[in-house]
């Protein structure tokens, strides 16, 4: 944060959020040589944060590109909107749906340009906008979004859209109407976690996808105590690569954590109290 930023702070401004993220290729994908098909983005806009995670389908040849484009297109559309409009004047859920539909259009466009079926780019997409003390989200597929409320309790914002069978879900590339995007808003939050399905069976209790408190509690505490963004991301990457995680899942893993608290600033001469 620069001094200029600080000058514009006012008591009415949104509280600061701190985010860390990590995304790692799954051991299955290393073995099969397919590379990572997950994509992730987190962008601050004013006092808000846009967070997106996507998981390209294993069977689709260009799903890594699909996931990357979905995340890029949706976050870009939201950035444009949030940069020119105060968040309080916007229906955030509606804005997220529009951004996701825009991403779906871009995927159709990419497929047409490449003369490939859009199924070659199959991807899921989960998007959230954190604004002050609230978060809004939209999801197509099997991402998992969990909010930590001010009292420390956990609430799932988005749980996987599953078919009857374990290996079925929805894709952004197959939706036929905006109603297939599931939206939610939760107020009074102090933390948010977003992940693709690789970590799902570790983080949620089946059936019903109840967030597992002993998974999320330490995770949010870790983010709150991180000394810097770079270090936090490094540690999170280390966690995703750790043997105890790898023993439980061979899929790509993506995890974003946001906490409503600025990290301790690096001590510098200017910041010492006079």
């Amino acid at each position: 944060m620069t001094d200029t930023d600080r000058e514009v702070s006012s008591p009415f401004q949104s509280p600061p959020w701190f985010t860390v993220a990590a995304s790692a290729v799954g051991t299955d994908h290393v073995r099969e040589g397919t590379g990572k098909q997950d994509a992730v983005a987190r962008h601050p806009v004013g006092g808000s944060w846009i967070i997106a995670v996507a998981d390209g389908a294993g069977s689709a040849p260009y799903s890594a590109e699909g996931a990357a484009l979905a995340v890029e297109a949706a976050t870009h559309a939201l950035e444009q909107l949030l940069m020119t409009n105060p968040t309080l004047s916007i229906d955030l859920e509606e804005a997220i749906v529009e951004a996701m539909l825009e991403a779906a259009d871009r995927l159709q466009g990419l497929a047409a340009e490449r003369s490939e079926p859009v199924s070659a780019f199959h991807t899921t997409l989960a998007v959230c906008v954190i604004d002050g003390w609230r978060v809004s989200s939209g999801q197509v597929g099997d991402g998992f979004l969990v909010a930590e409320l001010d009292d420390g309790s956990l609430q799932a914002l988005a749980v996987p859209q599953k078919g009857e069978y374990a290996n079925e879900t929805q894709f952004l590339t197959t939706i036929s109407s905006r109603d297939e995007i599931e939206t939610a808003t939760v107020e009074g939050i102090r933390g948010l976690a977003a992940m693709t399905d690789g970590l799902l069976r570790l983080a949620a209790q089946m059936p019903g996808y109840a967030p597992h408190p002993r998974f999320f509690g330490p995770l949010f505490n870790f983010a709150r105590s991180a000394t810097s963004e770079v270090k936090g991301c490094e540690e999170l990457t280390g966690f995703l690569a750790s043997p105890r995680v790898r023993a439980r899942t061979s899929d790509d893993l993506t995890l974003v954590i946001a906490v409503r608290q600025a990290p301790p600033a690096e001590p510098s001469a200017e910041e010492l109290p006079i």
């Binding site: 069976r201 089946m206 998974f215 995770l219």
Partner: peptide, 17 residues
């Protein structure tokens, strides 16, 4: 690695069948 991340425990779910 961070001791906080070491404190994380994983949900115990049955394998899909």
């Amino acid at each position: 690695m961070s001791t906080m991340l070491d404190q994380m425990e994983f949900a115990d779910n049955p394998e899909p069948r």
